[in-house]
């Protein structure tokens, strides 16, 4: 149930400011792709263009094409809402709905997309929580507020919420940056399991993390001071970290700048 994503010459703007320029890449199904690069180089912006979340910021717009299995997400007759339904997202800081219980949080997306029988809903919630390795920790308190969990648990709850609607692609915007090392490890393990079902794209500042979990890595950088961000290099992760073709990439991963 995962699909190939093809991006061709994509630009994104905030008002007049061009944040990223001329990005083209292909992301294979059932793989983990990592975006690395210094802060402010447009990784998160690019990620948000992939499920049309970029345009919810006032004044933001996108030019170019994103094809999901050959279909353009930015075609005139495509609704952003249905795009986001197919391409789920996990955010930097865990953001369970504070007014909902754990169960309701996982079921939130399902409730939007039609009616399910109670038992069916129960099944999906359980599968999703198991899928995010959270089931054993919360099965006895499904009706407690989601905000009462620890940070790492909350993030896994958000992943469960995202996978409950069975998206094709899962976007993760620095999902571990607000978590401790143990929770981070749990999420990384989870990602390796989830990639059998989903295409996963992750933005990370943690080079080791990119090296550990991803199959392919894209290095983003600014074209220059005040210039939009670009993809400098994209290749198999092992190659990027051992033998990058660009000098800038090597400098970045060896810590010589950024």
């Amino acid at each position: 149930m995962s699909q190939q994503i093809q991006v061709s010459s994509l630009d994104a703007y905030y008002g007049k400011h061009k944040a990223i320029e001329d990005i083209s890449m292909t992301i294979e199904p059932q793989s983990i792709t990592a975006f690395i690069g210094p802060s402010g180089c447009g990784k998160s912006t690019f990620l948000r263009t992939l499920n049309r979340m970029h345009e919810v910021i006032p004044g933001a717009r996108v030019e170019g094409k994103v094809l999901l299995d050959g279909e353009d997400l930015y075609a005139a007759d495509v609704e952003p809402v249905s795009v986001r339904r197919m391409i789920g997202m996990v955010f930097q800081r865990p953001n369970p709905f504070p007014t909902m219980s754990i169960y309701e949080n996982v079921a939130a997306g399902l409730k939007l997309n039609g009616r399910y029988a109670r038992s069916e809903m129960d099944d999906i919630v359980e599968t999703s929580l198991k899928g995010s390795n959270l089931w054993n920790e919360v099965k006895d308190r499904l009706n407690k507020p989601g905000a009462g969990l620890s940070g790492g648990q909350q993030q896994r709850l958000c992943i469960a919420r995202a996978i409950a609607v069975k998206p094709e692609v899962l976007l993760m915007d620095e999902p571990c940056s607000a978590l401790d090392p143990i929770s981070t490890l749990a999420i990384e393990d989870l990602m390796s399991e989830l990639k059998n079902q989903f295409t996963i794209i992750i933005v990370t500042h943690n080079m080791q993390q990119a090296a550990r979990v991803s199959d392919r890595t894209a290095f983003f950088n600014l074209a220059g001071q005040g210039q939009p961000g670009r993809v400098i290099e994209m290749d198999d992760t092992s190659r990027i970290f051992t033998n990058p073709s660009q000098k800038a990439t090597e400098d970045y991963i060896t810590g010589r700048f950024g």
């Binding site: 499920n51 979340m53 249905s82 789920g88 955010f91 504070p98 939007l112 958000c158």
Partner: peptide, 15 residues
Amino acid sequence: VPRMHEEAALALGAT
């Protein structure tokens, strides 16, 4: 309402 809660709903494909 925190922006991130609204974005969470948006990312689930909410109108």
